[in-house]
């Protein structure tokens, strides 16, 4: 069920939602959080799709604010949907002009679920300081995506400077499966010291840098980041031990090869994660991710990181199997 309201106010939208619930009989409010998406014009669809998919795991109210011309006369349009395509969520898409082009607490307050956590998500742009943003301030978690920004590494640097507990970034979330596999390798007793870590992937991917600094910081090893000349996401991590190299290499999007000195190569499932999977993981925890904070605050500034131009081999195979630059 979809209702469109032109030139409206958020309190009218709230009334409309109540009416829709009455009519459809969808009365139980099993919603666990409010997700506020601050999207750029023309970029909201993928974010909404991912949010709907994630809502199956975390039923929520999704408020999407799309900012239009701030210089135009003030106006707010809204579209509310429930049931059917909305998945397990209620979606309110707000389009704002003029004063309403700025997402703020006062604009959306009437639509926030009572007493439920708020998660703010900027799928594309980065606010100057997420925690100072009007909605960022009231949010329990602030999700940014430095990979989608114009200059990803700069965004990461901005994030570092303004880090507040509760901030998180999807460039970090994309790494979880890599980190799980690396931690599993290190679960076995290590007889040899790891001196150096080499991480290879696109120079445009903040994930590459985050992974490098995380391992380097944890292992007390120097980190070399090899920037691939081809636009590919993270594809190889090498731990250099005295007895040889431990490598996880994923040429495509799904299967990686794990090589450990003294044993045969093994295949592991290491799929590129979708936006929906990353978002669902973010919504699983609403307290600050201290490890991410540590990577930003400590590791990023202290790790010994060296950048080199790699001459990565062109991964053979189907181009549809290639990763995007920001993938991890």
């Amino acid at each position: 069920m979809i209702r469109t309201l032109k030139d409206t106010t958020s309190s009218d939208v709230d009334k409309e939602l109540a009416k829709m619930r009455e009519e459809t009989g969808i009365r139980t409010l099993g919603r666990v959080l409010t997700l506020v998406i601050m999207a750029d014009m023309g970029h909201s669809e993928r974010a909404i799709e991912a949010a709907i998919a994630a809502s199956h795991e975390h039923p929520c109210r999704i408020i999407v604010h799309i900012s239009h011309d701030p210089k135009a006369a003030n106006r707010l349009d809204a579209e509310a949907s429930m049931g059917g395509d909305a998945g397990a969520s209620e979606i309110v898409v707000l389009r704002g002009w003029g004063e309403s082009a700025h997402a703020s607490e006062s604009l959306i307050a009437a639509l926030l679920l009572p007493d439920a956590p708020i998660v703010a998500w900027w799928p594309h742009s980065l606010p100057d300081c997420p925690a100072d943003h009007s909605i960022g301030r009231i949010a329990h978690r602030r999700i940014t995506d430095s990979a989608r920004a114009e200059v990803p590494w700069d965004s990461l640097n901005e994030l570092r400077k303004r880090y507040t507990p509760g901030d998180t970034d999807l460039a970090w979330t994309r790494l979880t499966l890599w980190r799980i596999q690396l931690a599993a390798v290190m679960d076995e007793p290590q007889k040899h010291r790891i001196n150096k870590v080499i991480v290879e992937g696109s120079e445009k991917s903040p994930s590459v840098l985050l992974l490098g600094t995380w391992i380097g910081y944890r292992l007390g090893a120097t980190v070399e980041i090899r920037e691939s000349p081809q636009p590919r996401g993270l594809y190889r991590v090498t731990l250099c031990r005295d007895d040889g190299e431990v490598t996880i290499y994923r040429p495509g999007r799904n299967i990686a090869t794990l090589s450990i000195p003294g044993s045969a190569d093994q295949q592991i499932a290491l799929p590129v994660r979708s936006l929906a999977e990353c978002l669902a993981e973010e919504l699983r925890r609403l307290d600050p991710d201290e490890v991410f904070g540590e990577v930003l605050n400590e590791a990023l500034s202290r790790s010994e990181v060296r950048f080199t131009q790699g001459s990565a081999p062109v991964p053979a195979g189907d181009p549809s199997d290639y990763t995007e630059v920001y993938d991890a």
Binding site: R179, A183, L219, R285
Partner: peptide
């Protein structure tokens, strides 16, 4: 060293 009790994603 890669494990941390606070790192609940792992």
């Amino acid at each position: 060293p890669l494990r941390d009790p606070q790192d609940r994603r792992l």
